[in-house]
Design a protein around this nucleic acid. Structure first.
Lengths: 174, 174
DNA sequence: ACAAAATATTTAACATGTTAAATATACTGA
DNA sequence: TCAGTATATTTAACATGTTAAATATTTTGT
């Protein structure tokens, strides 16, 4: 029994040391050559924040059997009415090839319909169906509940500030 | 020629009307049932901002023939020294199944090595190789240049504020 | 009106994200 | 000590992200 405890303790010590390794434990990398601190990286910070937020919504969407992107598309369709694929791509921030696949699955599930634009044969017009509206009515209340809880914990004004900064960042080069 | 112009004008009018459609153009959706305004959605705003930022880095990374995630992994390895897969997963914000694949490709390319932890046979220890350090030295200057330009346009203090808010958002439920 | 350039969508190929399940190893409590 | 439980990693299956190229249609300049 004593031997077992010693073995466990040694492993604990080992693990603690491993997690506290200094950056130069491999003895090769010089500080001047290191990239900027990963913990203050904007791309990773944006990813972490997004994952934290979506972590609240994803299980709920899964219960309703829609993916995050499918939800974005039908929701924007309900909000904006008929749209062509390019406009949807811009609004939902989904690249064209992904959108093609999402449209296909949404059409198969009967949530939207596709039709060729009579004025411009290149464009595909998207419309939400009654079934699409139905699922929006089912999901929206849950979505609002989650968003409201988030607003209360983070603060509505702070969210507004954050949204403004994010928008500015997104439109910097335009 | 006159006919051609008229046709073009009609299409322009049509397009303009299409983009200005009112939300209820399908005559079904009531306002009370609509989800919150998509343009002020935190998940989409985070996605847009992240894409805008990565849009600056991705072409540069592609020139060096590394993906965004591969870059995150080798960079964190250089910064932190030997790590096991779980710690890497947490730091790089890459889920375990994705990390398994990324590790495989990085090992095939000779940028990292894998080894079983002698103290805990379940864990896989990752180490950066000389080739991995070499590519970091190649990419880091370009990365820094891009990040510095971004800092100057957006403002270093504003980026710090943003990072703080994003971190708070990411750690809300912890 | 016609060839060339531009635009909208799709396809292809590969990388990653996401969830669930499988596998291997370590830990826990009786 | 041993069965049961927990943990680390991998595999599987499907959805999406990303870039380049293909296709169909429209617009432009002459």
């Amino acid at each position: 029994m004593a031997a077992g405890h010693v073995a466990r303790f040694k492993k604990l010590i080992h693990r603690t040391l491993m997690t506290k390794q200094s950056p130069d434990d491999n003895g090769i990398m010089q500080d001047a050559l290191l990239p900027r601190d990963t913990r203050r990286s904007l791309p990773i910070a944006l990813l972490r924040a997004r994952e934290a937020v979506m972590g609240h919504f994803r299980p709920m969407l899964a219960l309703h059997d829609v993916t995050e992107q499918q939800w974005r598309v039908i929701r924007i369709l309900a909000e904006a009415g008929t749209l062509d694929a390019s406009e949807m791509s811009e609004r939902a921030f989904i690249l064209a090839p992904s959108l093609t696949r999402i449209i296909r699955s949404l059409e198969e599930r009967g949530f939207i319909t596709k039709s060729k634009d009579a004025e411009d044969g290149r464009r595909i017009l998207l419309q939400i169906t009654a079934a699409g509206l139905k699922i929006i009515n089912e999901v929206s209340p849950d979505s609002r509940t989650i968003y409201t809880a988030l607003e209360q914990r983070f603060g509505r004004e702070r969210i507004d500030t954050l949204l403004d900064m994010l928008d500015e960042l997104a439109t910097l080069n335009k």
